[in-house]
Amino acid sequence: MRSTAQANKAEAKWISLFNGKDIEDWFVKIHHHEVGVNAHETFRVEDGMIKVRYDKYGDFNDQFGHLYYKTPYSYYRLVVEYRFAGELQRGAPSYTVLNSGVMFHSQDPHTMPKEQDWPISVEMQFLAGLGDGKVRPTGNMCSPGTDIVFQGKKYDGHCLNSSSKTFGKDEWVRAELIVLGDSLITHMINGDTVLQYTHPTMGGGVANNYDRSVWQEGKPLKSGYIALQSEGQPIDFRKVELLPLR
């Protein structure tokens, strides 16, 4: 007779969240627009990749956006392969240059008002070097509308840098998340563990104009939606795969 661990290992299979052809299993929420409106074709599929582009924009006008997979998850490994492309869109905040990410444990975007800018979620932030020789790690943590515990204490800040090296603008990077409900979260870059923290909860600031009935300070974040980010910097995603762990 197989052990439970052997059975679980045999049954676990990686799921391709992106099929390489379309984003029919995904839906969009962009600031200033209703959920489901892919304004300016921000998210599109070309050359077998999900591309975030702004060639149909005028001024950026704080149109921060996210592309959500249709199913929420709780315990899983997530792999995202990305590279930055192009130039920062006119009018986008300077801090968003070569900056993007993947959100997880996110609220359902259908609960987001039109004027909510960021989803209540945790972000694995992606950055690339600015060409100035300064260290700029990727695989960091940011926390819109949330809090985390780092090294045994509630983290007093919005973003927390990882220990990764700095990558160039056009380099493909493999980012991996290991999410164990509301307990341990692990960030990995190109196979190396670069950050770990625990106990994500609702809290903090940064997210604005959310429905007050949705945000509950101190509520553990045990599951939620996964979303690819758009905040003014063109970026490509060629792989988005998930392995359920429970």
Score class of each variant (00 low, 15 high):
Gly86Asp: 01
Ser16Trp: 03
Glu176Ile: 03
Phe64Trp: 06
Val179Thr: 01
Leu130Asp: 14
Gly86Ala: 05
Ile120Gln: 14
Arg212Gln: 08
Lys51His: 14
Ser106Lys: 07
Leu78Asn: 01
Ile15Gly: 02
Pro200Val: 02
Val102Asn: 01
Gly205Glu: 14
Lys56Gly: 08
Asp236Ala: 04
Thr198Pro: 07
Gly224His: 00
Gly129Glu: 13
Lys56Ala: 11
Val214Gln: 10
Glu24Gly: 12
Tyr68Glu: 02
Glu115Thr: 14
Val135Leu: 15
Ile30Ala: 06
Lys70Asn: 07
Gly58Arg: 08
Met188His: 04
Phe84Ile: 04
Pro119Phe: 11
Tyr57Ala: 07
Gln6Leu: 15
Tyr95Thr: 00
Ala12Ser: 15
Ala85His: 02
Ala12Trp: 09
Ser213Ala: 14
Pro144Val: 06
Phe27Gln: 00
Ile148Cys: 05
Glu87Pro: 02
Asn190Phe: 11
Gly58Phe: 09
Asn140Pro: 05
Arg53Gln: 14
Ile30Gly: 05
Lys134Val: 10
Ile148Trp: 01
Ser100Tyr: 05
Gly91Asn: 04
Gly101Glu: 01
Ile185Leu: 08
Lys114Val: 15
Thr138Arg: 06
Tyr76Gln: 01
Ser164Asp: 06
Gly168Gln: 13
Val97Cys: 03
Asp147Pro: 01
Ser74Thr: 07
Ser223Lys: 09
Glu24Gln: 13
Ser213Thr: 11
Ser106Asn: 12
Gln6Gly: 10
Gln89His: 04
Lys51Cys: 14
Phe43Pro: 04
Lys153Tyr: 10
Ser143Gly: 05
Tyr57Cys: 08
Lys169Thr: 07
Asp117Pro: 13
Ser121Lys: 14
Pro234Cys: 00
